[in-house]
Design a protein around this nucleic acid. Structure first.
Lengths: 214, 214
DNA sequence: CCGTGTGAAACGCTTCACAGCA
DNA sequence: TGCTGTGAAGCGTTTCACACGG
């Protein structure tokens, strides 16, 4: 492959998140036929500084040309490889309630290469229900077998807070090591498992604090 | 009103988010009738360290008793005041699609004191639709007047990415200074406005990076 | 002269160690 | 003795300034 092997250094998580923004923007630019872009232009779109963009990229190599900028398609491809967005990730959705169904229908992330391959719920009334894309809601006991059969690598937890730990345990027992969880509150996982929490409550509380103290 | 006025220092955003977790946990403890708790116990629930909890609290004052711990009800009340969770915040939801409706129905945050007081959508087919809690979907032009009439202070944006900037502009024009936004991509706001992005795409990309590089 | 790439400085958050008080 | 509260150390991220190459 290229001259720049990924560096094994310590990469800030925040840098990874920004790289995913750059990746998205580059995809749009490529669709528009833009060939070249500078760190300044990328930065402006997201309200960042140019050196932030360059530093983020520098963790993984040198992708630009001095005096010129970056070749859009090449950089997009490189970021895709770095982020693992070059191939499709299959996901299990646990919870077919409000939030779960909204996520299921919200297929934006599909363009990024994430696909919900199976849906599970503990409620017998929901099990057996047929969703779009040929997916049927399965019972919790099916998580273990389904993960293996369908090469599922990521779990999404969209159950009520009380059921969160149980859902996470079922996923980790099935060998899942990457989980996105919606319910707030306490969930503990083995430490080789990456758990990312989306906490609406914390976000709202941060806005509340801002309003109350400005 | 006590002896400890809030300090005007620089408080880490991450500390604020953790305080919202403590607040939630204290509410549960209070419901269970627990009178006193130590930083160690709070920490254990969230997989944190005791000094982290004490440091977070210390930004705002001294709420415990040495050798004893914290009085649950007193601490909960104090955190509520600090975070602005002692009174209700009224919110405007922009976007009555998948995500918007899921948020509308997901009323967990209501217990925290956040209430969706009005819902707006640009789609004429959706305008006029009657939702629960006596709310009717209103057209975008109503954002300005409604914000004033109903004392709305927070905006939630749940529209497609292309429409995000427009929705945010409508909210800021109406005087909203705290916004929670779901669509990924570039949205710019005046700098006195707090914009918090919930980016599923970035979260998934971080998980993808983790899987691709472990 | 332009824009990238990067070592080093600045900064901010986390962690620590212990003084202080019940 | 027990647990809080906090100054200071440690550490990781952001910011800067400039060398480098087209």
């Amino acid at each position: 492959m290229g001259a720049n092997a990924p560096r094994r250094a310590k990469i800030p998580e925040s840098a990874i998140r920004r790289l995913s923004f750059y990746h998205r923007h580059l995809r749009d630019l490529q669709a528009l036929g833009v060939a070249t872009i500078s760190s300044r232009e990328i930065a402006r779109v997201y309200g960042l500084e140019p050196f932030q963009v360059r530093k983020d990229l520098s963790y993984f190599g040198s992708f630009g040309r001095r005096g010129r900028g970056y070749a859009v398609s090449r950089l997009r491809q490189r970021l895709g490889l770095i982020l693992g967005l070059d191939s499709e990730w299959r996901m299990a959705l646990v919870g077919a309630g409000n939030i779960g169904m909204a996520i299921f229908r919200y297929q934006e992330y599909r363009r990024l290469g994430f696909r919900i391959a199976a849906v599970f719920d503990a409620d017998p009334d929901k099990v057996g229900r047929e969703l779009e894309h040929g997916i049927t809601v399965e019972p919790m006991e099916r998580i273990g077998p389904a993960v293996g059969e369908q090469d599922i690598r990521i779990g999404i937890v969209a159950v009520p807070p009380e059921a969160a730990q149980n859902a996470v345990d079922a996923l980790t027992a099935a060998g899942i090591t990457a989980i996105l969880s919606f319910p707030g509150g306490q969930v503990l996982v083995p430490k080789d498992v990456a758990l990312r929490r989306v906490s609406l409550e914390a976000d709202l509380a941060a806005l509340s604090y801002f309003l109350a103290n400005k």
